[in-house]
Simulated assay, not measured.
Amino acid sequence: MLGGAVGDALGWPIEFLTLKQIRERHGEAGVTGFLPGPIAGAPQPITDDTQMTMFTAEGLLRTPAGGDTAPVLRRAYLRWRDTQQQNGPGPEADGWLARQQFLYAMRAPGNACMTGLRRQAEEFVPAGEFGKPGPVNPNSKGCGTVMRSAPFGLANFGPDRAFHAAMRCAQLTHGHPTAYLSAGAFAVLIDQVLAGVELPIAVQSTIARIAPMPSSAETVTALSSALAIAQLGEATPERLELIGAGWTAETCLAIAVYCALHTYRTGDVRGAFLLAVNHSGDSDSTGAVAGNLLGATYGLNALPMDWIGALEGRDELFRIADDLVLNFFYNDRTDLDSRYPIDTELAR
């Protein structure tokens, strides 16, 4: 959770710049840390990537034990949608997370997320047939699915349930099979590295898991490319850009894998974050997904504490991360029900 927020905040100011423009403005090394904001000393802003990830976690924490995640996640994402349409929490804000003022900031949310949730606000549209375009935004394969899906891998579901839960909930907004399969693959990766599987093996086993599935070719190709390009030598932005720009779900995931593999080979966590954002593409989303993977793989102590200390919403991110552990690894909901009331209105 914290690693994702770090990558998100690092990448947001340069999201729409080319690598050439980044280097012209910030030097040959590109961005090497947080850029100064308009208000000196203010926290480093997070974007919709981290906002939606937090609401994913909140939705999972509000799902009844053994219950269907999709209807509950729909309602969680609609609470996030409210934060993009209101100036602050109203008196009827539903739950602890929706009462956090800092989340009521609109920072270039993805079009498919917004249009998909507009349709979900009218009625619950469940996932379609696996391997075929879903009913909501069937042609959308943007990275808005992957960038919010790390919590499915943090919920101690095991790889099968993590995959299917992430995949079905991705279809709430994105119907393209590559979009929802990539979200499922990311959840599996997070689940596996948390279980102690070494990163290259986790990537290879994820590829093997999804390769036989219908419509998986794009995701399999992107992940295989990340593994192959990582073998070419020193990780560079130019080699990273051989994978893609990160705007689509499969390239965003593959870029994150490439950056995390850099840390696996070198031990350089800070360099992986910077690699994930200094390129021509969706820098905040690739930074966020890479940060999720780095945090899950190497733990809190490996993350740059100076960057974590500067984050907007840092305390809330710590809390929700701790609450995930308490709920899903220790089955301890002491003090959690007040923050995450179980969503029992599944029939709506």
Rank of each mutant, 00 (worst) to 15 (best):
T173M: 01
A170K: 08
G153T: 09
L103A: 03
C143M: 06
H176M: 06
G158N: 07
C169Q: 05
G175P: 00
M106L: 15
G116M: 02
G95W: 08
L154V: 05
R168D: 02
L181T: 08
M167I: 09
R99D: 03
A187Q: 09
L154P: 01
P159G: 12
D160S: 13
Y180C: 08
P126T: 02
Q171N: 11
R107F: 09
N139R: 04
Q100E: 14
E129K: 12
P177L: 11
L97C: 14
F186K: 01
R168H: 15
F102A: 09
G184F: 09
M106K: 15
R119Q: 14
A150S: 12
R148M: 04
P109A: 12
S149V: 03
G128I: 14
G116L: 02
L97P: 00
H176V: 02
A105P: 00
L103E: 01
A183W: 06
R99Y: 01
P133W: 01
T115G: 05
K132A: 13
A170P: 00
H164R: 14
R119K: 10
H164K: 11
A162H: 12
N139T: 04
A150L: 11
S182T: 13
G131E: 08
A108Y: 13
A105F: 06
A170I: 11
R161V: 15
A166D: 14
P151R: 07
R161C: 14
Y104I: 06
A98P: 00
A127H: 10
A183S: 15
T178E: 08
R99I: 00
A150P: 01
A183G: 15
F186M: 15
Q100D: 09
Y180T: 09
M106W: 13
W96S: 10
A165Y: 07
T115L: 10
G110I: 00
G184W: 11
D160R: 13
H174R: 02
L181I: 15
A170M: 10
Y180I: 05
M114T: 10
F152S: 04
A170S: 13
G184S: 12
A112F: 04
G116T: 03
P126L: 09
M114P: 07
G95R: 06
P159N: 12
A155D: 07
L103W: 02
F152T: 05
Q120S: 08
R107H: 13
R99E: 03
K132P: 02
D160F: 06
S149N: 08
T178N: 04
R107P: 00
P109W: 03
T115A: 12
N156L: 10
A121H: 04
V188E: 09
S149E: 03
T178L: 04
D160N: 12
A127C: 14
P133F: 03
F130H: 09
Q171I: 10
A108N: 11
R107M: 15
R118V: 12
L172R: 05
G131D: 02
A127Q: 13
G116R: 00
P126C: 10
H174P: 00
Q120R: 04
Y180K: 10
Q120K: 08
V188N: 07
C143L: 05
L103Q: 01
L103S: 02
S182F: 12
A112T: 11
E122S: 11
F163N: 04
A183Q: 09
N156T: 07
C169M: 11
P109G: 04
P159K: 13
G131P: 03
A98K: 01
H174A: 14
R99M: 00
G158W: 07
A108D: 04
F124D: 12
G110H: 00
R119D: 04
H164A: 14
P159Y: 05
R118F: 12
N137S: 06
